[in-house]
Nucleic acid binder design. Structure first.
Lengths: 215, 215
DNA sequence: CTTGAGCTTGACCATACGGTCAGAAAACGA
DNA sequence: TCGTTTTCTGACCGTATGGTCAAGCTCAAG
């Protein structure tokens, strides 16, 4: 029977498998190239080379550059949103905001390219995900603001404007991904070590939690 | 005598004046286009149109696109650096850091395009100002870190890691420029009003100053 | 007025890029 | 094995872009 021995793949429909595999390769390569070169600076050829595929093959899976970019941005957005689960089932700001900071710092560390693509997209006026900003993100933000406001009303934290507090959290955590190169340069050209990441996370948590009066 | 009545210009050397004027027009247009489209997405034609000049004229003043971009980035960097003057002659963290936050928030408001260009440049690995990062910015950072450490040693503030505190300050203040579009969208599509800018600045100041234990 | 240096500009060029396509190859079902 | 569907890919095309150039124009100095 046609069982390829040296390739340890799940042989659950080879067609489907090939498609999934290639789409992932392309999306990973695209995420990195879009992050490093920007949308305008990225070329399909560069993405193809990094994915190890001929350029024409990219257009088989993703009809246009914009379609590919759109998919990359949406994938990141999904990761963003799920990061807030920690926020929800928390009894108060210490646990909720603390966990949120840790989750977002972890994302900055694991998905630096994605964070940069998102930042680029927003900086350029969100040409492809404006609808998401106006629907999903707006709803999401309103929900968390309500939670924070509840905590304020219950006297569980200092009366801080929930909106600007959220912006501060986003800004600080994403900064470690988006400005990673600058941070690395100021770190003697070396990427942050595990210990330094912990230190960064702890510093952010401490300053914020004390800043909202819960430490 | 050839005195143009309807143009109120200083006639101090018309050649020099024309050159200064045009360079400024071009640099202003370039800053905006680079910010909105990214380096790769920006075209000389777009910049020329916005500056109200023929494209060929741009190449007379700036030989290449990269040279023009380089000048834009350097101009912004200068503004960054001078923002820290408020930092220096302060007796303690309340005045120093408070003033620094206000200065940087004001820059975010006045120079949103410049901030975005800087962010883009760093996100893409600082291809044109890496030397600045390694020299000027590194020195600058070391100096401010020393000041903060002194305050910590003197017991004027809580023992917060100066490096990460600086990153937090940069992140939060620049966020209001770099992610201005997102903030505007979440503000009902309206730019922040004067009052909202004040509110933002105050929130940041309050949370940070309380976060470092000086309120 | 004359002259020459600085400024302006339409037309042009080489290149690189996104995208297309026809046909080969591989996988699949019967 | 054979026919069909899906995947793969080199070669190709139209366009847009950064950059060039030569000719013309403006201005100030002599």
């Amino acid at each position: 029977m046609p069982q390829n021995a040296q390739v340890s793949r799940i042989s659950k429909g080879k067609r489907t498998e090939i498609r999934r595999e290639n789409e992932r390769m392309i999306l990973d390569a695209a995420e990195r190239v879009f992050a490093e070169a920007g949308y305008g600076g990225a070329t399909m050829q560069l993405i193809a080379d990094l994915a190890g595929l001929p350029k024409a093959n990219l257009h088989y899976y993703f009809p246009t550059k914009e379609a590919l970019y759109r998919q990359v941005v949406r994938n990141i957005f999904e990761i963003w949103l799920h990061a807030a689960d920690s926020f929800d089932h928390a009894p108060g700001p210490v646990e909720g905001i603390g966990a949120y900071i840790e989750a977002k710092m972890e994302i900055s560390r694991r998905h630096p390219y994605g964070s940069k693509v998102w930042a680029s997209e927003v900086m350029h006026g969100a040409p492809v995900i404006q609808d998401y900003l106006e629907s999903t993100l707006r709803d999401w933000t309103a929900g968390r603001m309500a939670v924070i406001q509840t905590w304020v009303d219950q006297g569980k934290m200092a009366p801080v404007d929930p909106r600007h507090l959220l912006y501060m959290l986003w800004a600080m955590t994403q900064h470690y991904a988006d400005f990673g190169h600058q941070i690395e340069t100021l770190n003697g050209g070396q990427p942050l070590t595990d210990a330094q990441w912990r230190e960064a996370t702890e510093t952010v948590k401490t300053v914020i939690l004390r800043g909202i009066g819960v430490l």
